[in-house]
């Protein structure tokens, strides 16, 4: 993973990924993805369902193994020495319940652990309360997350990421299932962090309330980057249509390997897996 440490670019890039390949269950999900996010930028990651957005951010954070490529986070190679305390991640959904109840406080407190910090720091309760407050979940601290609505669970996941006061925030569809006022509050929180210099990578299906913040869009299709540049401003097309299709309007070039790739990256590609 940490093959070359070309620190020439230094920590000016919050995320620097080159040639990222990921193989899951025998099929190649990501094929040579390059993503560079300069510190302080807000980048939207767009693409249809199954295009590999979640897999990409999971790979960037080391949650799924890379079969090729390098990733640097805040200037450090992915690994135990990466500055995990400065990275916050909101996954697409909370894992299915296991039967043992866990309260919002317990789930958010787990966000205070990272890297080598295996125990919550002193004063963790105050920080957890503040994070829950920031997502409008004050008063729900001691409720089991299993009893919460999907949107409330999502807010708890956001709080779990915010509790670290991250410099790099990675959000996987953070506002799906969240009511409009809370979306606005959350976008304000992200805007505040961005104002303090935080970098944000956010997976979205519609820019929605994030639109004013987004500085750049990366569009994935079949596990490849097909657009990297200005966010898709003309929203008229998107407003009425189903959000299954995010087209990169600024980049009309067809993908170079388009026709050969089925949506499931069929068995031909799967054969190449080790």
């Amino acid at each position: 993973m940490s093959a070359d440490r070309t620190d020439a670019t230094g920590p000016t890039n919050a995320v620097e990924a080159h040639g990222v390949e990921v193989t899951l269950g025998g099929s190649r999900i990501l094929l040579g993805v390059d993503v560079v996010v300069p510190a302080g930028e807000v980048v939207a990651l767009l693409g249809t369902n199954g295009s590999g957005k979640s897999t990409l951010v999971r790979a960037l954070l080391g949650a799924v193994p890379l079969s090729a490529g390098t990733v640097h986070l805040l200037g450090e190679p992915l690994g135990p020495r990466a500055p995990w305390s400065r990275i916050g991640y909101v996954p697409q959904r909370m894992p299915a319940s296991s039967g043992v109840s866990a309260t919002a406080v317990e789930v958010v407190a787990s966000g205070l652990l990272h890297g080598r910090a295996l125990r919550p720091p002193r004063g963790w309760r105050t920080r957890v309360r503040a994070a829950l407050d920031a997502v409008g979940m004050a008063g729900h601290e001691r409720r089991p997350v299993q009893e919460m609505s999907g949107g409330q669970q999502q807010r708890v996941l956001i709080a779990r990421a915010l509790v670290r006061e991250p410099e790099l925030l990675v959000l996987d569809e953070p506002t799906s299932g969240i009511d409009v006022p809370t979306q606005a509050t959350f976008v304000d929180t992200v805007a505040r962090l961005h104002g303090q210099g935080a970098t944000v990578v956010v997976i979205l299906h519609e820019l929605g309330p994030f639109e004013p913040l987004i500085q750049r869009a990366v569009v994935l299709r079949h596990g490849r980057v097909v657009h990297d540049g200005l966010p898709p401003r003309p929203r008229l097309d998107h407003a009425g249509a189903t959000h299954h299709h995010e087209h990169a309007h600024h980049d009309p070039d067809p993908p170079p390997t388009g026709p050969a790739l089925g949506p499931t990256l069929g068995p031909t590609l799967g054969m190449e897996a080790p």
Binding site: R58, L61, A63, S98, A102, E106, V107, L113, H114, G115
Partner: peptide, 15 residues
């Protein structure tokens, strides 16, 4: 607790 509750998040936290 963290690794049992949400292993993927734990991995994405460098644990």
């Amino acid at each position: 607790f963290t690794v049992s509750h949400d292993e993927e998040f734990a991995r994405a936290s460098g644990l």
